[in-house]
């Protein structure tokens, strides 16, 4: 499924530019330890995390995930959205838990 379909289906709030590259989502990964995510997340995954600092943009870009979803209503720190935009990274926010999000993504994929 496309990133835009996921955004609509799950009612995700778009925190970065709405004019994004609409990639195909091929999987899902949940994690907050950045090195763990770097090593284990796959390209094209939707990455669910509660980590909100600026380094999530670099990790998302380098690990080549399709998008980042901040769970449990977490908002990114100041400057994170701008940094993500400069690297073409999409960040969404949701009030749902990581489990609820992953469960919905699992049904949608």
């Amino acid at each position: 499924m496309k990133v835009s379909d996921l955004q609509k289906d799950l009612g995700l709030e778009v925190l970065t530019s709405k004019d994004y590259e609409d990639r195909e989502i091929t999987g899902c990964y949940i994690g907050d330890l950045l090195s763990w995510v770097m090593g284990r997340a796959k390209a094209g995954d939707a990455w669910i995390t509660i980590m909100s600092n600026v380094n999530i943009a670099a990790v998302a870009s380098l690990a080549d995930v399709a998008c980042v979803i901040l769970a449990e209503g977490v908002k990114p720190d100041a400057g994170v959205a701008e940094k993500a935009d400069s690297q073409g990274i999409i960040i969404f926010s949701s009030g749902k838990t990581s489990y609820e999000l992953a469960s919905l993504i699992s049904k949608a994929l």
Partner: peptide, 16 residues
């Protein structure tokens, strides 16, 4: 607290 220090740095480098 920033999400680093998982002890995966060098193992990840070796892996990739």
């Amino acid at each position: 607290e920033l999400g680093f220090g998982a002890g995966m740095g060098l193992p990840n480098i070796k892996k990739y």
